[in-house]
Simulated scan of single mutants.
Amino acid sequence: MCRAARVKPSEPALTLVTGVSGFVGSAVAHALAARGARVRGLVRAPSPRGNLADFPGELVEGDLRDGDAVARAMRGVRHLFHVAADYRLWAPDPEEIVRNNAAMTRVVMEAALAAGVERLVYTSSVATLRPRDDRPADENDAAAPDQAVGAYKRSKVIAERLVEEMVAARGLPAVIVQPSTPIGPRDVKPTPTGRIVVEAANGRMPAYLDSGLNLVHVDDVAAGHLLALDKGRIGERYILGGQDVMLGDMLGRIAALVGRRPPAFRIPRPPLFPLAWANEQLARVTGREPFLTLDSLRMAKHRMFFSSARAEAELGYRARPHGEALADSIGWFRGAGMIR
């Protein structure tokens, strides 16, 4: 149970962050605490505790699909960062990902309206955008649910549209941010991109696809969240990205950082589809999320390149070079014992 103490005039505003046991949520909470905010984190009871040992604030437990639990956590809150999401690119029941992300978003936004939260930042994703082959995608390239590849991307499109509808129809004071592909410290799960870093650093990726992605340091993403709270326009979307990088170049940089040879072979996508199918069937037996999935291969058809120009112009957002982000990521994974 959470009881919000009466705020003294001299005390900073209380800020609630969801998803603080996770990668981006943990970074946002630490960034808030570093600038003197009072932070409350909302976590599910079974959440991993690796990022909570040094949590810089108050922790309360509750399921984000439970309206009563979220309402209790929202008491006394002035600002909200809804970062939590069911971030899986594969599940035995893909629609479970859609149901979870839609339900969590609706419950949290309803609770924020009921509690009179002054301002909030909703963490969406570049997964809600249509990749472009002629230029980096930007906020104008919004996807419809049926244009999204896979359950996770579709779930984020549905959730983002829900937030936008509540802004327009009910005055929800939300700013939307769309991180690209964060890497860096505290990736405890790890994320799908974090798994690529770990596998490559351990010498288990001898080949690569002709694809690309936009890499950004997780702490820069966290800083972008705070800028969105301070300067973002209500109802607007802001891409929080870094640098566009070809997958082969990313793997080569990882190899150089750990003292290994870079992968030598670029392989086409079609021969990998049977392997991805087999991986998914095995995952149904083992319960472990497969490294290679059918949806990930479908996504790799396009280079996931994005522009952060709007965030840079309106928020003053900046991101460090992706090589620094990779070095910090490898250093953290090595310290966690994930890289030999």
Results as ranks from 00 to 15, higher is better:
Val157Lys: 03
Lys231Arg: 15
Ser10Met: 06
Tyr87Glu: 05
Ala168Glu: 15
Pro92Trp: 13
Asp68Leu: 11
Ala228Ser: 02
Trp332Ile: 02
Asn51Trp: 13
Asp219Arg: 15
Gly67Val: 08
Glu165Val: 06
Val43Phe: 14
Thr18Val: 06
Leu240Thr: 07
Glu95Gly: 02
Ala142Asp: 07
Asn214Ala: 02
Ser21Trp: 11
Ala200Ser: 05
Ser296Phe: 14
Val167Pro: 01
Leu16Gln: 12
Asn279Tyr: 14
Ala127Glu: 07
Ala325His: 03
Ala256Phe: 10
Arg195Thr: 06
Met338Lys: 10
Ile330Gln: 03
Asn140Glu: 12
Leu272Gln: 10
Pro190Phe: 05
Gly248Val: 02
Ala207Met: 00
Leu209Gly: 04
Glu118Tyr: 00
Leu275Val: 13
Arg288Leu: 09
His225Met: 08
Gly194Ser: 09
Asp187Cys: 01
Arg320Ile: 04
Leu14Gln: 09
Ser180Met: 02
Arg135Thr: 07
Gly259Ser: 13
Gly76Arg: 10
Lys189Gly: 07
Arg161Leu: 11
Asn51Cys: 03
Ala319Phe: 08
Met304Trp: 15
Gly171Cys: 13
Gly259Gln: 04
Ala37Pro: 00
Val20Met: 05
Ala29Asp: 00
Ala311Asn: 00
Pro173His: 10
Gly212Ala: 08
Arg284Val: 01
Asp133Glu: 15
Val17Arg: 01
Thr193Asn: 07
Glu96Lys: 15
Arg298Ile: 09
Ile330Tyr: 12
Ala29Cys: 06
